[in-house]
C-alpha cells in the first residue's frame, strides 16, 4: 500500500520533470531573473568592494526570493488549464502526497539550480569566500521552504484573473521570516553578526514546518479552487 503511494509520487515527480524540462523557457525565467538582478546591482552601486559586501547577503536573498515567487505561477496553472489537475484530484492516493511530489519536482528545476548558481553570483557581489558555503546552504534550505509556502496561494488563486499579482501579495508576508534569517545567516558568516548556525537551524525548522503543513494546505486549496 505505502509502496503504491511512493510509486505514484515518483511517477508524478518524473512526469513533472519531463513536462517542465520540455517547457524549459518557463523554468528558465526565474533563473534568468536571479542572474539579471544580481548582475545589475554591482553596476548600479559601483565596484566598491566594501559597499557591495555590505549589501550582498540581502541582495542575493531578495533576488532568490523574487525569482521563486516569479516561478510559482507555473506550479499549477498549466495543469489547471489542460485538466491534468482535475485528473490528479481523482488519484487513488492522498492528494497531499501527489502535491508534495509536484512541488519537489518544481523545486528541483527552479530552486536547486538557483542555489547551485549562487556561488558564482556571490563572487560578483564581492561576498567573502568564507560565506559562500553558508549562502548555498541557506538557499538549499530556504528555497524549498519558499516553494512549499508559495504553493498554497498558487493553489488558492487558480482560475482567478490576475492571480499572479495576488500570489505575490499573499506570499510576501509569509516569506519575510525566511528572508530575514536567510540573509542574516549569510551576513553572519561574512563576519557581520552572530554565528550563522543559529540562523541556519531556524531555516531548517521553517523547512520542516513547511514540509508538514504546506502539501496538506495546498491540496485543500486545490479542492476548493476546482470545486
Amino acid at each position: 500500500m505505502t509502496g503504491g503511494v511512493l510509486g505514484a509520487m515518483r511517477a508524478v515527480f518524473v512526469r513533472e520533470l519531463l513536462v517542465f524540462w520540455r517547457r524549459s523557457t518557463e523554468i528558465m525565467a526565474g533563473l534568468v531573473f536571479f542572474l539579471i538582478v544580481t548582475t545589475l546591482f554591482p553596476l548600479a552601486i559601483g565596484p566598491e568592494r566594501r559597499e557591495l559586501m555590505l549589501v550582498a547577503p540581502g541582495v542575493l536573498w531578495v533576488a532568490a526570493l523574487l525569482a521563486t515567487t516569479l516561478s510559482l505561477n507555473h506550479l499549477f496553472a498549466s495543469d489547471y488549464q489542460d485538466g491534468s489537475l482535475e485528473q490528479l484530484l481523482m488519484s487513488p492516493y492522498p492528494l497531499s502526497a501527489m502535491v508534495l511530489a509536484k512541488i519537489a519536482a518544481h523545486w528541483v528545476l527552479t530552486g536547486l539550480p538557483l542555489a547551485l548558481l549562487s556561488p558564482l553570483l556571490a563572487i560578483q557581489m564581492a561576498l567573502p569566500t568564507k560565506a559562500i558555503g553558508t549562502l548555498v546552504g541557506s538557499l538549499l534550505m530556504g528555497t524549498p521552504t519558499l516553494t512549499l509556502i508559495g504553493a498554497i496561494p498558487a493553489a488558492l488563486t487558480l482560475g482567478v484573473r490576475g492571480g499572479g499579482v495576488l500570489v505575490s501579495l499573499l506570499v510576501l508576508p509569509l516569506y519575510t521570516p525566511v528572508l530575514i534569517f536567510g540573509a542574516e545567516a549569510v551576513a553572519a558568516s561574512a563576519g557581520q553578526g552572530f554565528a550563522s548556525v543559529a540562523h541556519l537551524s531556524l531555516l531548517g525548522a521553517f523547512l520542516a514546518l513547511a514540509l508538514s503543513f504546506a502539501p496538506w494546505a495546498s491540496s485543500a486549496a486545490l479542492r476548493v479552487s476546482l470545486d
Binding site: G7, A8, R10, A11, V12, V14, R15, L18, V19, R22, R23, D79, Q81, D82, G83, S84, E86, Q87, L88, M90, S91, P92, M98
Partner: peptide, 23 residues
C-alpha cells in the same frame, strides 16, 4: 471532463504510461 487532462509536452504514449503509474 470537458478538459482532456492531457499534457501537451508529453507524447501520447507517455501520457498514458505515466497516467497508469500515477492513477
Amino acid at each position: 471532463g470537458h478538459l482532456n487532462g492531457i499534457q501537451g509536452e508529453l507524447t501520447a504514449a507517455e501520457n498514458l504510461r505515466l497516467a497508469s503509474r500515477v492513477f
